[in-house]
């Protein structure tokens, strides 16, 4: 019988382990992989990728009806929503402070603090707090969130080139994790990690958001940038060794494929299943590219992706 010797790569680097929560809350550790995703035959995969459920601080508008119906009344209250999300199996709650957006209510620090307090009190999972993605407002509400959650080791996003100093400093002061978001580009991702570390944020307190392209909407760019980041990490580049987070739900549910049943070709198939597969396939493909946290929206996707992760972890 021919001898088959499977080539094993001798990686010199591994992904940083980042802990969220603890101190009375449940703790989740992500990262730590010493090889490419789920290749247990080659290296250690000490932690399973985590599933976060996205919660908005305002009642979502324009959500497809099946997505809104899956949550029902809790959509009006972020605390009830987060509690429900915990029941649906979330490992982490990702709270989006959308109301701080100038177009969505322009709320400020006080409201942000209240919402974060309420959500933290409603469940005991680790928390991610995301700003409205307008740099100056992110600074205001994320700093407020940081103070409100001092010592609870939440993750704050996003740090971008424009505002990393403020968010980074808040993370240092209050013991949180910074989410460094860059637009699908490996060098910018590395550069922002370096800037955050220079500021004094420890590498174990940084997550990278490489920017998610949904299936059919730039997925291949995100996929390859993530594979390249992971390859750089495994070959020993400490400034690309941060675990990666992907905002899958947000990106896949806003595409026409997930929303529309009218004026689309019959060959797109039945909307409900198509939309679920759209989110699931975006998530599973990016998990295979190295995602350590996927932020999802539909409870059924959460169930399916958790089952997929179980199977991939063997």
């Amino acid at each position: 019988m021919p001898e088959v010797e499977v080539p094993l790569e001798k990686w010199t680097g591994k992904v940083n382990e980042v802990r969220l929560g603890g101190n009375g809350r449940q703790a989740v550790v992500v990262g730590g992989e010493a090889t490419f995703p789920f290749l247990q035959f080659e290296g250690a995969i000490p932690n399973r990728p985590a599933v976060a459920i996205e919660v908005l601080d305002v009642q979502p508008t324009g959500w497809p009806s099946q997505l809104a119906a899956a949550w029902g009344n809790v959509l009006a209250d972020p605390a009830l929503w987060a509690k429900k999300a915990a029941e649906y199996g979330a490992d982490i709650i990702a709270l989006r402070l959308k109301s701080a957006h100038p177009e969505e209510g322009d709320t400020g620090a006080e409201e942000a603090k209240k919402t974060v307090d309420k959500v933290l009190a409603a469940m005991d999972l680790p928390l991610i707090v995301l700003g409205p993605e307008v740099a100056e407002k992110d600074n205001i509400v994320l700093v407020a969130a940081s103070e409100a959650a001092r010592g609870q080791r939440i993750a704050l996003g996003n740090c971008e080139e424009k505002n990393y100093r403020t968010i980074g400093a808040a993370c240092i002061a209050d013991g949180h994790v910074a989410i460094a978001k860059t637009p699908i580009e490996i060098n910018l991702a590395k550069q922002l990690n370096i800037l955050l570390c220079d500021l004094g944020v420890s590498p174990e307190s940084i997550l990278m958001d490489p920017t998610t392209g949904a299936l059919g909407y730039g997925l291949e760019y995100t996929y390859s940038v993530m594979e390249r980041l992971r390859l750089a990490c495994l070959t020993g580049d400490g400034m690309t060794s941060m675990p990666m987070i992907c905002t899958v739900g947000e990106e896949s549910w806003r595409q026409k494929e997930s929303k529309s049943d009218i004026e689309v070709p019959a060959t797109w198939g039945e909307l409900e299943q198509r939309a679920l597969i759209w989110e699931e396939m975006t998530a599973s493909t990016l998990l295979n590219a190295g995602a350590d946290i996927v932020v999802l929206r539909h409870p059924k996707t959460v169930e399916a992706i958790k089952a997929t992760i179980d199977k991939l972890m063997g």
Binding site: L215, G216, L219, E220, E257, A266, T267, E272, W278
Partner: peptide, 16 residues
């Protein structure tokens, strides 16, 4: 086979 599974899968193949 159903269009609602074939379409995402063909899209993924096109991406990859």
């Amino acid at each position: 086979f159903s269009p609602s599974m074939a379409y995402p899968l063909l899209t993924l193949r096109l991406n990859i």
